[in-house]
């Protein structure tokens, strides 16, 4: 039973990381209608930045994360302006998808060139030992607790930002109808840039948490969590912020438990099967809105 609880808590922690990544995905998708395949690589870049600041620069861990967030935000805005914005209004939505793949290759190979393929051992950002419950039978690591709390804070802040501020309302408006939003005096380009900025900033946070939990950093670290987080976003209903959270947590818990109780190798297959089953029952995800097709 305690064993089960340990894996459940680990799953929630992993799920929280997926959720933070998925929030970035879902916001960008909701507003720009693009699958940002480079999002996972922004996480990787963020992790490398934190690593560099902490290990090479000797900067305080928390400050490193903040610096990395700033850098990733800038990175997100720059890639959006250079690579994605010119393709807005292209005749096929595949164009921007392929460009995102190009950006993903670019970031991976840049990291490969600078940091080489040798895995970097990430020294933990969180040094807190954690707590033990039931006379030490159940140990919860500090990283796990911090991860879960961070994701909750992020979720609440994001919800408040979107529902309570003018910028957040502008985001909703742009994601509903770009043209109408522009007519209402919303600066669509800036709103999209802001979304990319927030998504990329969150990616740096996710990178810090991911690498604290799994301290093995390579140029390909971000790819698989990125895809899984995207699956989480779709599972929860893409475009929906609580959906990303629920999707992420579901995915994390299922992955952790199936690794423990079914098979390590088949865990990914099980995660993806869940997505397929959910989409067959609810084609727009758990919390997604059904869009009526007009003729």
């Amino acid at each position: 039973m305690l064993n089960f609880l340990t894996y459940l808590v680990n799953g929630i922690s992993l799920g929280s990381i997926y959720a933070i990544i998925a929030l970035g995905y879902t916001m960008v998708y909701g507003i720009a209608k693009m699958l940002n395949f480079a999002h996972g690589d922004v996480i990787m870049i963020g992790s490398y930045l934190i690593y560099t600041f902490m290990v090479t620069g000797g900067v305080n861990p928390l400050l490193s994360v903040l610096l990395a967030m700033v850098c990733c935000t800038v990175l997100g805005i720059v890639t959006e302006k250079v690579a994605y914005k010119p393709l807005r209004g292209a005749s096929s939505s595949l164009a921007v998808l392929i460009t995102a793949i190009g950006v993903s290759y670019l970031l991976q190979n840049l990291a490969l060139l600078i940091f080489t393929a040798n895995p970097k051992s990430f020294s933990p950002v969180i040094t807190w030992e954690g707590i033990s419950l039931f006379d030490g039978e159940l140990r919860i690591q500090g990283v796990t607790i911090v991860t879960i709390i961070t994701s909750l804070i992020v979720l609440v802040c994001l919800q408040l930002f979107i529902n309570r501020t003018r910028q957040g309302q502008a985001m909703i408006a742009v994601s509903e109808d770009k043209g109408a939003a522009a007519l209402m005096g919303i600066n669509v380009n800036n709103t999209i840039s802001l979304t990319f900025a927030i998504g990329s900033g969150l990616a740096a946070v996710a990178g810090a948490l991911l690498c604290s939990a799994y301290p093995n950093l390579t140029p390909y670290t971000g790819a698989m969590p990125g895809i899984k987080a995207f699956v989480a976003a779709v599972l929860g209903g893409i475009g929906s912020i609580p959906g990303a959270m629920i999707g992420g947590l579901t995915l994390g818990v299922i992955e952790s438990l199936s690794k423990r109780y079914i098979s390590t190798q088949l865990a990914d297959a099980i995660v993806f099967s869940i997505l397929i089953i959910v989409l067959l029952v609810r084609p727009t995800g758990l919390l997604g809105k059904k869009i009526q097709e007009k003729v």
């Binding site: 010119p86 393709l87 164009a95 392929i98 460009t99 793949i101 670019l106 991976q108 190979n109 060139l113």
Partner: peptide, 23 residues
């Protein structure tokens, strides 16, 4: 080491030239 980097840049540039409405 630079080859995949160049490949990525070429890919992005081709996409921009080919598909960007402005281009």
């Amino acid at each position: 080491n630079y080859r995949m980097l160049i490949y990525a840049i070429v890919l992005i540039i081709i996409m921009l030239i080919n598909w960007a409405p402005a281009a």
